[in-house]
């Protein structure tokens, strides 16, 4: 097992996420281009041009290369779990120089910049266990402008799912052009406060255009897309038909007294990339 080869692979993963958008997002943006007019169309045109320039010149599409965020699924039969955290952290430091990434980690007390995109609890990694011997790492670098529009609310259970929908629509209207619409919205319902937010972020891992398998949740997603897009906020908040590219909802059981809702907003640069590490140390980035 070559420690460095896997670190190199994770650098590739970060680079891919920063430079190239997943095809599902590009497809949704192209659909938006087809239906928009005037200023809104110009915004989407700029976005599509930018995606091309970034890919051709191998540069990060946005100067805000985000907080380095990873979701890791560890196959329970993978033998080198103990190295993974350090391998990801080392890769972030190398990627900061090589990709490059903007140094985005400030100490909240001293304002000191760590300069390598690491620090206490950062990179932010969510661990999970799955069957088998492969490790799947998803990189989802998260920009500050969209993250700033994220919200947690502890609703009264009596307001029900209609109350959840009203909260989401209202918050997305208040957010206006700030999170760089057209956005992708992740919503976590249930659990405790922390789990609701985590589910909201996890919801962003689902490709754009894919509905939840549970029919009633899928209907809620469709209703939210329609209502948010009716706001007319449009691309970059300058008016238009496309305010969200998609809305993804995930749920967990709730406490009888609680109805937590975690709203996580992702900009149009819905950056995601995956890496699979096999038990023999070989890997692929896709």
């Amino acid at each position: 097992m070559d420690y460095g080869s896997i670190v190199g692979g994770i650098v590739q993963l970060i680079k891919k996420a920063e430079i190239e958008l997943p095809s599902d997002v590009v497809k949704a943006l192209k659909n938006a281009y087809d239906i928009e007019e005037g200023i809104a169309k110009i915004q989407i045109e700029n976005i599509l041009k930018n995606i091309d320039v970034a890919k051709k010149t191998m540069r990060p599409m946005c100067q805000d290369t985000g907080v380095q965020t990873f979701f890791v699924k560890i196959g329970v039969d993978y033998l080198y779990v103990g190295r993974l955290k350090k391998q990801i952290t080392d890769a972030v430091k190398i990627a900061t120089e090589q990709v490059p990434l903007r140094p985005n980690t400030f100490d909240p007390f001293t304002h000191k910049n760590h300069k390598d995109n690491t620090g206490d609890y950062i990179p932010a990694i969510t661990w999970d266990f799955v069957d088998g011997s492969d490790v799947i790492i998803t990189a989802i670098p998260k920009g500050g402008g969209s993250e700033n529009m994220s919200k947690l609310v502890m609703l009264k259970p009596g307001v029900g799912i209609e109350g959840v929908k009203d909260f989401v629509v209202e918050e997305m209207i208040k957010a206006g052009g700030n999170p760089c619409p057209p956005t992708v919205v992740g919503i976590g319902i249930g659990g405790g406060a922390d789990l609701a937010m985590k589910l909201g972020k996890t919801a962003l891992l689902r490709p754009v255009g894919i509905r939840h398998q549970d029919k009633k949740i899928a209907l809620m997603e469709e209703d939210l897309i329609k209502r948010i897009n009716q706001s007319g906020i449009g691309p970059m908040g300058l008016g238009g038909k496309t305010t969200v590219l998609d809305v993804h909802v995930e749920k967990a059981p709730r406490h009888p007294a609680s109805l937590p809702v975690g709203l996580v907003v992702q900009c149009w640069a819905d950056r995601r990339a995956n890496m699979i590490i096999h038990s023999d140390g070989t890997w692929e980035v896709e």
């Binding site: 930018n50 540069r59 990060p60 402008g145």
Partner: peptide
């Protein structure tokens, strides 16, 4: 005046 947010590579050009 508003420029397209996130279009960082294009702006750099």
């Amino acid at each position: 005046m508003s420029y397209t947010g996130g279009a960082g590579a294009l702006a750099a050009d």
